[in-house]
Design a protein around this nucleic acid. Structure first.
Length: 533
RNA sequence: GCGCCUCUAGCUCAAUGGCAGAGCAACGGACUCUUAAUCCGCAGGUUCUGGGUUCGAAUCCCAGGGGGCGCACCA
């Protein structure tokens, strides 16, 4: 490519910095060393040492020798003395490097260390005259050479595109990013512990499915070559987990990735993580209580309290202290819109209400979809800003897998949980009447034929067969893990709690553009034997 | 899909139609107690891409691309 010839010199630029670092790799090899050694016997982490020796007086000498390792984040050269700040997974620690201790050769090797390199060091644990806990280095070893420079040591990396595409760099330099994913991990672990303690069994069900059911969403489509079969990535966990309750696993859950072929926003990623829980002999009332237990414990375990920052309202907080209020959706519609509605109203009346409220509707919608549309567009975003809110009694028409409310077949025993205007959970008493379930599936197929692109296009015959063997009374629940992580970490965007969010692809050519290849390293090791490109 | 905003050195940001700059990082040097070390010096640019307007464009206009936010979509 002629690009190389046209490109002007970049001394001090990225290309130059990487060439200089590649030269150092070659120099280490030329001296018989290994810039990428096999392992390092670390005896203590940064946190270990801060915990054991955090209270020492300035100028203390402990006589304790430890081996530490980490990435070099800061360097302060003082002539014959060098301070390195190294970061490991537990925190940061200072290395005190003296030419008098290391000798000329050892000290010269430390001079070659760059920001971003991984190093291992062994020496006495001391504090400096200013009182900083340090390892007074007796020997130091390069563990991995970094060829690319780190972002600004003080300002870090703030460009969101780069932060998401190069999450590894974000995690190196941004403590906030590390904290967010620690909170997420603790929340997930907590949910799992709570369910395990209550006797729930964790399972894994298929991601690749012949028909994607259990929610209203457009699936991703793929193809299995050997079976010559179109397959779909799952949009929910529900139908397989209820099959397992039929099989006698009375308390079952799965934490899993689901995929929906929809738009991307601060609250939506095409692949996201749900936990779904099914509990035989329980109903939606029990599931609301379980939801509360799970999220409250996650808050305690992840952030140590019930008060969280409101993600979208600076300065405001949300109090998760139980018990959370429970309200019927029709009551909430009246409270927030002033309109009185019911699924028992005729369609014309409800359409007129939608018109007054400027809620869009389609001609094939029945009373249930119209009521739900009003709730969805006008009420949901206003719920849960001070305390979480359970909304319940959802129309049957929008709840094809939920059990009808006793004495009111047009409504179901279903609830959703709202916190900060966002839906975090959805649950119900499960529909276990196979005849009625078949009717609901057939209505969905009809809706699909009317043009509802998210309705199931086929009847899931195997699921109906399972129901015919008898699904006991069962309560079900789905919780959006990403949104729980957003809530507990205080992050306003789902991309901040997903390590590698979905983005448009980056050109591989751009990434590779300045890659250091073997020829560069050879040139550096044996200058003069190659003519250069 | 639509609207608004945004893209300048490896990173963080200036330059509002008139010489493309700073800090950090890099490079050369001084320094045995620093804490974003300090000090001296030096270098680094496809101003996202392609057109256009203009004596002159990072800046204005058009088209395209990346990103952000909002809307739409999202039981």
């Amino acid at each position: 490519m002629s690009d190389d010839q046209q490109r002007t010199s970049t001394a001090g630029g990225l290309e130059d910095q990487r060439r200089i670092r590649a030269d150092k790799v070659a120099a280490v090899r030329a001296a018989g060393g290994d810039p990428y050694p096999d392992r390092f016997a670390r005896s203590a982490t940064s946190a270990d040492l801060h915990e054991r020796f955090g209270a020492l007086e300035p100028g203390a000498e402990t006589g304790v020798v430890e081996s530490v390792a980490g990435r070099v984040m800061l360097r302060r050269n003082m002539g014959k003395l060098i301070f390195l700040t190294v970061q490991d997974v537990t925190g940061s620690l200072q290395l005190f490097v003296s030419k008098a201790d290391l000798g000329d050769d050892g000290f010269a090797a430390v001079v070659e260390i760059d920001l971003g390199d991984w190093v291992g060091a062994t020496g006495e644990v001391i504090t400096t005259r200013k009182g900083e806990l340090s390892v007074k280095v007796g020997s130091v070893q390069l563990l991995t050479k970094a060829l690319r420079p780190l972002p600004d040591k003080w300002r870090g990396l703030s460009d969101t595109d780069t932060r998401y595409r190069q999450r590894y760099v974000d995690l190196i330099v941004n403590e906030e990013a590390r904290r967010t994913f620690r909170v997420r991990h603790q929340a997930v672990r907590s949910l799992r512990h709570q369910l395990d303690e209550e006797g729930f069994v964790e399972v894994e069900t298929p991601v690749l499915q012949i028909e994607a059911g259990g929610a209203a969403a457009r699936p991703f489509v793929t193809h299995h070559n050997a079976l010559d079969q179109a397959m779909y990535l799952r949009i929910a966990l529900e139908l397989h987990l209820k099959r397992l309750v039929v099989g006698g696993i009375e308390r079952v859950y799965e934490i899993g990735r689901v995929f929906r072929n929809e738009g991307i926003s601060t609250r939506h990623n095409p692949e996201f993580t749900m936990v779904e829980v099914y509990w035989a002999l329980a109903n939606y009332d029990d599931m609301m209580a379980l939801t509360e237990r799970m999220i409250c414990r996650a808050a305690q375990d992840a952030i140590g309290g019930y008060v969280v920052a409101h993600p979208d309202r600076p300065g405001a907080t949300i109090d998760l202290t139980p018990a959370w209020p429970r309200r019927k959706i029709t009551e909430l519609i009246t409270e927030f819109t002033g309109e009185t509605v019911s699924v028992h109203d005729d369609v014309a009346t409800l359409r007129a209400t939608c018109d007054r409220l400027e809620v869009h509707f389609e001609h094939w919608w029945g009373a249930g979809k119209l009521v739900y549309a009003i709730f969805d567009k006008k009420v949901e975003e206003q719920l849960g800003h001070e305390r979480p809110m359970f909304a319940y009694e959802y129309p049957t028409e929008v709840s094809p897998l939920a059990k009808p409310t006793p004495g009111d077949p047009d409504n179901t025993d279903r609830f959703e949980l709202f916190i900060g205007g966002k839906e975090l959970a959805n649950g119900y008493s499960e529909l276990n009447d196979p005849v009625r379930q078949r009717q609901m599936f057939e209505m969905e197929v009809a809706a699909a034929e009317h043009g509802d692109i998210e309705a199931a296009r086929t009847v899931d015959e195997d699921y109906l067969r399972a129901l015919e063997f008898g699904l006991p009374p069962t309560g079900g629940l789905g919780v959006g893990i990403d949104r729980v992580a957003m809530l507990l970490s205080g992050q306003p965007s789902i991309r901040e709690v997903i390590l590698f969010p979905t983005l448009r692809p980056e050109s591989a050519e751009d990434i590779r553009r300045l890659a250091v290849d073997a020829a560069d390293a050879d040139d550096a090791a044996e200058p003069g034997e190659h003519s250069g490109a």
